[in-house]
Structure formats: C-alpha cells, structure tokens
Design a protein around this nucleic acid. Sequence first.
DNA 1: GCTCTCCAAAATGTATACATTTATACATTC
DNA 2: GAATGTATAAATGTATACATTTTGGAGAGC
Lengths: 211, 211
Amino acid sequence: MSAEHIAATLETEIVEGRFRPGEELKQGEIAKRFAISRIPVRDALQLLASRGMISLVPNRRARVISLEPAEISEIYDLRVLLETDCLCRAINLMTEADLNAIEIAFAHSSIDAGTNRWADGDWAFHQSLYLPADRPRQLKMIEELRRTCRIHISGYGVLPAQTKDWLKDHEDILSAVRNRDKTIAQGILKRHINDACTVLLSAWPNQNNSS
Amino acid sequence: MSAEHIAATLETEIVEGRFRPGEELKQGEIAKRFAISRIPVRDALQLLASRGMISLVPNRRARVISLEPAEISEIYDLRVLLETDCLCRAINLMTEADLNAIEIAFAHSSIDAGTNRWADGDWAFHQSLYLPADRPRQLKMIEELRRTCRIHISGYGVLPAQTKDWLKDHEDILSAVRNRDKTIAQGILKRHINDACTVLLSAWPNQNNSS
DNA sequence: GCTCTCCAAAATGTATACATTTATACATTC
DNA sequence: GAATGTATAAATGTATACATTTTGGAGAGC
C-alpha cells in the first residue's frame, strides 16, 4: 500500500468523475479507508497535486481542481499547439509498424464509441499517433492536459453524444496519416480538439450564475 | 519554516548551480540544516519534484535532475513552440503600457549582460514579452522548461559568453514587437532559443565517455 | 586484480502523538 | 434578518520512534 498506489486509485476515481471538481479530499478519511496513517496519504495527495489533479494549499483541505472556462480554453489551445506539432513530427518518423499499431488502436477505439468508455480508447488512439514522434516529455504534457479536461468532462456529466463524429475524425486523421499529408492531418486534429472544447464549454454548469 | 520555504531555498541553490545535476539530496541532512524534522523536508522535496527539479523515486535518495542531450533538445523544441506562440498572442493584445514594461525590462536586463546574473534579467525580459498574452498556464509551462535548462547551464558551468549577442537579439525582438511584426519577432525568438540550445549542448560534459 | 556475497550502517517509509491552524455552529450586535 | 465575534470541533502540520529498504564496503573465492 504505497503512496503511489493510493494516488493511482484516487486518480482513477477523480478521472472517472467519482469525485467532482471542487470536491474535498480529507486526509483522515482516505487514511481510514485504506487502513494506513495520514503520512503516506499526504504523499499521495502531493503526487496528485503534481499531476495537476487537485489543488493543495497548506493548512487547507485538498480539492479536486475546478477550472474556469477561460482556463479550459487555454488548455485546449495548448493541446492544439502540442498535439498538432507532435503529430507532424510523428508523421515524419512513422514506420510501417507504427501505422499498424495506429490501425489496431483505431479499431479498438471504435468498439467503445457511444459508451462512457470512449475516453480510454480515444486516448490510446491519439497516443499511438504521437508515439512515433519519440517525444516523451511532450507526450507527458499532452497527457496531463487531457487528464485535466477529462476531470471536468466526467464531473460535469458531458455525455459522449458526439463520439460517433469523433470516431469519423479519427478515421479521417488515419487516412491522412497514411498518405503522410501533414497539413490535412493537422487540420482535422485541430478541429477535432476545438470541437471537444466547444462541447465541454456548452455543457458548463451555472452559466446563468453571475457570481 | 514551512515546506514551501525549504523548497524555495533549495530551488534557488539548485538553479544557481550549488547542487549539480545528479547530485544527491538527503532528507536527514536537509532536516538537520534547517533544524526541523524530516516530515516537512519530504514535503519540500515533493514540491521540488513536482516542479521538475529533482527526481524522486520511492526508497531512493532524491537527486537533482540530470538529463540527456536528447531530452535537452526536446525541451528547447518545446520552448520554441510554446514561446513563439505566446509571443504571437501577446503582440495581438499588447497595449502601450505593456510596451513600456517591456522596454524597462530590456533596459534592466542590459545591465547584467556579461555577468552571471544574466539569467534573471533574461527571464524578466521574456516574461514581460509573454505576459500580455494572458496565458498563465502556458507561462508556467515555459517557466518550468526554462528552469530545467538553467539547472544544466549552471551545473555545467556554461559561461555567459554569448550574452552580448543575446542582448542584441532582445533589442531586435523589441523593435519587431514595437512594429507588431509577428513573423519577424517569432523568427528571431526561435533562433535565439535554438542558439542557447547549441551553446549548452556544445558545453556538455563527458562527450567522449561512451558509458 | 576482479567479481560476488553478505552484512552493518545509513537512508527512507510509516505509525503514533501532539501542536497548530482552519472550519463550523452558535451567540451577539446592529 | 444580516453581519460580526467567539468557542468548540475538526482538519492539517510536525516531531519522535520504529520498520523497512537501500547502500557501500569488507572479505572470500577465482
């Protein structure tokens, strides 16, 4: 029962929406739940904080991050910047084996289209696209930004109504990648990401609340 | 004597090269030095780890990060991507007051050209360029990447021989920004960052060591 | 001289106890 | 009734003590 393990468990629960944005995480409750002392719980919470999943202010309770629409917009802009760049680099270096891996990831993701397991397959597909770029740090940054988005998507109950369209986008990206057409692939990817941003922001809670 | 304070003190020392890349940080030594127990020291170390300054593996001693040339290259590529984008957004939104602030930062940075205090003024100038973009998260990412570079620059004793050239770059960027010429400004910035990468990599230690 | 095994020293991880800070409920005042 | 102040409860922060893991070196064997 290491801190790493506690953090991983909590991470899954936050990402899947079992803790909502802004919800509190109390050291004592977590410690009791895992039958350990608060020391490793504190370590786990700091791990989550370093992954940008919770906000941790000294002497205050940990809270699941809860971003403003402006911050969400910035994150999606960053994703466009980092993901289109990564895709471009990947296309330059892509081998036949990489293409096969992408097709497998695509086929796998199509199974979960329309369900609430979409997010896992979606990320696996995008990851397979970016891996050939051989940019581990960039990929980590992308992953963290995506996780932040997902926390809000899950927490605000954004239903995967658009996943069929997004699957079509994946198909189009795949064929552009096959043709090694960087411009087309980047263009679809950019629209793909911006679409997701629009969907999330339009489902934002308290839009009439001027507080 | 909070964890935050310990972390800030250690951060300064690492950034300024008093701890070299790969050097160990022992909880007990730090605790004794600040006359506190190891608990807040552990918190401080996790803070440093979350800022990417040290590597923290369970049961192993904390070490100042020590990256490979390939990772340094990736970081500089990421900086080009994020900083040129941020500069472009900033130019779009820049006010007369922002321009004044940039000129003040430029004047201030010119004082320290040629000394080993260059890095602070350099970052203050770049920050003044990026602030009008109003992208706090992007700025944080840039700051972390720059800090990582700086740890290696300080640690490997890269002397600021080129700072006069870099000051000239700043001057050129400033005049391009004044003319709101995004293409020129981005071009100089990109070369500016890539130059710094070349300088660091050419000063890399153990180039003949095939271990 | 070199490598391997093993063990003691040293470093990290964790539980408990206590100190400090924050949060909540209640009473008081305007 | 809203706002302010206060006391009690609850949560977090830290020190100490102990458990566990790693580490570095001494010594045996080749």
